[in-house]
């Protein structure tokens, strides 16, 4: 996991106890109660002893179901969440960690974000987007909770809600987890301006020092056409994509991504989006690039870490008024 997520390191874990678990009948539960009432009234009217017994057995079942539904959540431990950075507009996937320290499996849990101050309709929608999970006894489970991002910067997971209607579906137990887990949101890559290559030479293209040297310069993602021997096999296991080894002098170009280069765009966000787009393009093409914003700058460099650093700067940049 990259360094940018370190901020969301490890919040204090939260263990559910009886004061935090709420319980209420579901729609099916209300129907169940109605049926119970009809059976009881029938038993009274017909003086039917077995009718009474059945009504009371079902009533007892409701109480027992309450204990079982409640037990399904009680003692569940939330150990916080982490998320890899994403670009604004796509879903941030928070990996929430839950621990089941009891000897019983916790079944049919449903988990989802639960921002405060929602109207009823949104809430119903939120409930429908919950993620299902089952946690075997003694297991730490990671569950991905998607959260839509709108703006760049830090996005907080906020309040999480876990609920379950197991085992009878007539009662719903739920609880909230509050954590400060955050996800870094890069600007949305947008813009059509061409890459502004550094204007160092007349041709507009500056070759890096050490032309023709075979000094290792880093890795870049594989693109069709790359020679097979350039593929970095050793890193294949580590990285998610196939990487190609790059050496200085292999057509690496210098690109300066500066605030002035995007001055033609109106507003800070479109500019940052364009810069973000360029960073991705330059990284993809294996160019060496630098970022210059009013007040912050990142020197020339290449590679994954360099890219992430640039993106992080873009994500957190506070544009001058």
């Amino acid at each position: 996991m990259s360094a940018v997520t370190a901020r969301a390191a490890r919040p204090a874990q939260q263990r559910l106890d009886r004061r935090q678990v709420y319980i209420f009948p579901t729609a099916a539960g209300v129907t169940f109660g109605f049926m119970l009432g009809v059976i009881l009234i029938g038993a009274i009217n017909y003086d039917n002893a077995l009718g009474y017994l059945l009504a009371f057995l079902l009533f007892g079942l409701v109480l027992v179901a309450m204990l079982h539904t409640y037990r399904n959540l009680n003692g569940l431990i939330y150990r916080g969440a982490r998320a890899l950075p994403v670009h604004a507009g796509s879903d941030a996937l928070f990996e929430c960690q839950f621990e089941n320290s009891s000897p019983l499996a916790r079944l049919a849990l449903r988990l989802g974000p639960w921002p405060r101050g929602m109207d009823k309709l949104t809430r119903r929608f939120m409930q429908s987007t919950h993620t299902a999970m089952d946690i075997a006894p003694g297991i730490v489970a990671n569950v991905g909770v998607p959260r839509l991002t709108e703006k760049r910067g830090w996005t907080t997971l906020g309040r999480l809600r876990v609920e379950s209607v197991y085992p009878l579906g007539i009662l719903r137990a739920w609880a909230y987890f509050d954590g400060d887990s955050q996800c870094l949101v890069y600007p949305a890559p947008r813009g059509h301006l061409p890459l502004p290559f550094a204007p160092a030479t007349a041709s507009g293209l500056t070759q890096l020092h050490g032309v023709g040297s075979d000094e290792f310069a880093g890795l870049r993602p594989y693109t069709p056409g790359d020679p097979v021997r350039a593929i970095a096999w050793k890193t294949l296991a580590r990285e998610r994509e196939v990487m190609v080894k790059r050496f200085h002098g292999q057509g690496a170009l210098r690109v300066l991504l500066s605030w002035s280069a995007v001055a033609s765009l109106a507003g800070a966000e479109p500019r940052l989006s364009q810069l973000c787009q360029w960073v991705l393009e330059a990284h993809g093409a294996g160019h060496s690039y630098a970022l210059e914003l009013p007040g912050v700058s990142v020197g020339f460099g290449h590679g994954r870490e360099h890219r992430d650093e640039c993106l992080r700067v873009l994500a957190l940049y506070e544009a001058p008024p």
């Binding site: 009474y52 009371f56 057995l57 009533f59 007892g60 109480l63």
Partner: peptide, 17 residues
């Protein structure tokens, strides 16, 4: 198991209701 757990509750309700 759940039904068995309901039985004492049932008996109490039967006697006391």
């Amino acid at each position: 198991l759940m039904t068995a757990q309901s039985i004492p509750l049932m008996l109490l309700a039967f006697v006391l209701f």
